[in-house]
Structures are given as structure tokens and as C-alpha cells.
Amino acid sequence: MKITKEQVEHVASLAKLSLSEEEIERLRTQMGGMIAFADEINTLNVASVRPTTHAIAQKNVFREDGCAPSYDRAVMLENAPMQDGECVVVPRVVE
């Protein structure tokens, strides 16, 4: 299946990315290759195979409810590009 320029732009806008014309063209080719591979898989007959979402056959991996101390705020905020000592700060989000 061929990927169109519009499809690349759509996915980019969902991911809030702005792409140059060259980037769009490069990604269009790459994504086309990925989809082609999926198409190839689609040609296999899997009528007798149960849908699988996990590579290992495990279920019910749980944690019992209970608290442990959280991380130090200053340490957590070190990862933010912008912060004010209490909160992560981002450019104003329009609603």
C-alpha cells in the first residue's frame, strides 16, 4: 500500500510535529516500507491461530495496593525543560 503525503502530514499533526518537505518525503518512503511489510504478513493464512497480543503466555501480573514514598520533587523536576520548583511549565495550552 502506498502512503500519501497527506497521511504523513495527518500523523505528524496528531503528534504535534512540523516537518519539512524533505522529511515528509523521507518518512513517506519509510512508512510505505513498513506498511508493505505488514501487507506481506497479511498474505499468510492464520485462520487456525488465536489472536495474540503478548509474546509470553502470562496473565494476571498484579501488584497489591499499597503506597511507598514518591520521588523527591526536585529530582523529578530536573527532567523538565522548564519548571518553577513546584510544577513543570509549558507554553500556554489553548483549550
Binding site: 501480573v61 498484579f62 501488584r63 497489591e64 495496593d65 514518591s70 520521588y71 520533587r73 523529578m76 523536576l77 527532567n79 513546584e86 510544577c87 513543570v88
Partner: peptide
């Protein structure tokens, strides 16, 4: 207080694994 109940899992740091609360 803001951001005092957070850790790498709930702030989506790369490489963390969620453990579902039963």
C-alpha cells in the same frame, strides 16, 4: 503539594514498567 506524589512510572519516563494494582 504539586508534584509530590510522582515517580518515573506515573510521569512516563522512558524504560519504566507499569505494575497493575490488583
Amino acid at each position: 503539594s504539586e508534584n509530590t506524589h510522582i515517580c518515573p512510572v506515573c510521569t512516563g519516563m522512558p524504560g519504566v514498567l507499569p505494575a497493575l494494582n490488583k
